[in-house]
Design a protein around this nucleic acid. Structure first.
Lengths: 118, 118
DNA sequence: ACATTGCATGCTGATATGGGCATATGATCG
DNA sequence: CGATCATATGCCCATATCAGCATGCAATGT
């Protein structure tokens, strides 16, 4: 088996930096493809392809307006990511890091003096 | 060019669900590889490989203890992800969604104005 | 009708992936 | 030392990716 498809979920879709850039660019509101092309300095086909991936995971919606296609951000699928990552929030807090070190040291000491572990 | 390496950053490393599972399993504290093998129901080599990726992006630290290698969570690299995702937090708030819809409708109406009578 | 603009899609090629399986390395025990 | 437990690596392979480039196609302008 190979790596999971980029269209599998938000995690995979957003692992690509360009796609994150696109989402960032859409925070300000709807934009036609050429706007994004100009903003990102990418070739138009690649932008369209990235947008396709984002659309498939529901991170953007499209709307036709004349000969343009206006893409709009829809962050809902990011909620899952946010929830998951938040689980680890304590981990990068300095205070927690210290606490963790202390706990680990305690464990090591215990394991050394008791003999009975687990 | 192909997809970015999984070891490029936390975004890519964590796009793989098994690796997320491993991190989840490590929230409770240090664990030897075989613990993870049992918990995840994966083959030992794959677990070791996933751990390698996690180590390369700094999401886990290792410590030798006899013939075991104890892996420990280090969520610091997740902070970047958290910060980025948080940027979009408003997006999945119901109230914001509604506001957004209204704004879009207004825009659509505006774009249409001046011509058709209604 | 024809040219043009705005986007999407198709194809090619180099590349890294992740699982399966075998094997190497390393520490510990008898 | 030889056996065994705990992990890491190596190799094979099917697969999806992403960039680049050409082309398809709908909407608009003249």
């Amino acid at each position: 088996m190979a790596r999971a498809a980029t269209t599998t979920d938000a995690f995979n879709a957003v692992a690509e930096p360009r796609r994150r850039d696109i989402l960032d660019a859409l925070v300000g509101g709807e934009r036609p493809v050429n706007d994004l092309v100009a903003l990102l300095g990418l070739a138009q086909p690649q932008v369209s392809k990235h947008l396709r991936v984002l659309r498939e995971v529901g991170l953007v919606d499209v709307r036709d307006e004349g000969r343009q296609r206006l893409y709009r951000l829809n962050g809902t699928p990011l909620k899952t990511m946010h929830d998951w990552v938040s689980t680890f929030e304590r981990t990068w807090t300095e205070r927690f890091d210290r606490l963790d070190s202390v706990l680990t040291e305690l464990k090591e000491k215990e394991a050394r003096d008791g003999g009975t572990d687990q």
